[in-house]
């Protein structure tokens, strides 16, 4: 049948909005020390107050400016999640690529491991492990990397399996190219977009998970400017200054949603390319 050619479109409004949000968050995370050098400065005399002049979103019970805390919070919330997404993507590629391409018992073993990890709710395991081992930001990141890597491995391996029996890979085998060269030069460029899209989705999930751990007191120490931690610290102040709760809550949701939207959009593009090829 005749295939109508692909409609070339600009990214939709939601993706543009999401990219704008991510840009703002990235700027906040990168330049927080210069933008809000005194974010954690307390003003116990002022105490908690609603929005007003000088404090657009009010202050918390320690008299800290909620808006400044929000900007400073990006610096804790984002890099950790980025580490988790990047780390698990790295492991996923390093394990998933050879597992999918070479197969064999190593592949079977890796997949049983991934199945086991996959059947557990990552966040629940992270709560138990981080709680028992005493919590802490670095530990939380490490635990999440270990828990997220199986997903990446599965995604990468699945994508490799889809490519492995394509004639172009077999033709490369017939040219007597080494397995390493075929994996890195032929297969990987075709699955990299999938891995990248998946990393965005992981990024979002890591952000939420880290915020959850901090909320439970298993991530950053109390009083640190982190969105999840601020939410937890301020939840008793619902009535006095609702913005102290609303602002970090919305920041988490908006950032995670933006990451998910971009990730979905990347996936869709890969998928569409796959169909029109």
């Amino acid at each position: 049948m005749t295939r109508p050619s692909r409609v070339v479109t600009r990214p939709p409004v939601s993706v543009v909005t999401a990219l704008a949000i991510l840009l703002a968050v990235a700027v906040a995370a990168a330049f927080a020390p210069w933008l809000v050098p005194d974010a954690t400065g307390q003003d116990l005399m002022l105490g908690i107050s609603g929005p007003g002049p000088g404090h657009p979103l009010g202050t918390d019970d320690l008299g800290r400016d909620v808006l400044e805390l929000l900007v400073a919070g990006a610096r804790t919330a984002v890099p950790g999640a980025l580490c988790v997404a990047a780390g698990s993507m790295l492991i996923g590629n390093l394990v998933g690529l050879p597992a999918g391409y070479l197969g064999g018992w190593a592949d079977a073993l890796a997949m049983r491991w991934a199945d086991l990890m996959f059947s557990l709710p990552a966040l629940l395991v992270a709560i138990v492990v981080a709680g028992v081992l005493g919590g802490g930001y670095g530990l939380a990141i490490a635990v999440l990397v270990v828990l997220f890597a199986p997903t990446d491995t599965r995604v990468v391996r699945g994508a490799v399996l889809e490519q492995r029996h394509r004639p172009y890979v077999e033709a490369a085998r017939l040219k007597n190219l080494s397995a390493w060269r075929i994996m890195t030069r032929h297969v990987w460029p075709n699955i990299a977009p999938v891995a990248l899209a998946n990393a965005f989705l992981n990024f979002a999930y890591a952000l939420v998970s880290l915020a959850s751990l901090s909320f439970l007191g298993l991530g950053v120490p109390a009083g640190s400017p982190d969105w999840g931690r601020t939410l937890s610290d301020n939840r008793t102040q619902l009535l006095a200054n609702p913005w102290a709760v609303i602002a970090p809550g919305l920041a988490i949701i908006a950032t995670a949603a933006a990451l998910n939207i971009v990730g979905d959009w990347l996936y869709e593009r890969v998928d569409r390319r796959g169909r029109t090829r």
Binding site: S232, L238, I246, G249, A257
Partner: peptide, 24 residues
């Protein structure tokens, strides 16, 4: 879009926002 936002929202943040709006 609503689905993605829902998917991205951690329950504690949603819970606190709900408390702010509907309870407090």
């Amino acid at each position: 879009t609503a689905g993605v936002v829902g998917l991205s929202a951690p329950p504690f943040a949603v819970g606190l926002l709900l408390l702010v709006v509907f309870a407090a």
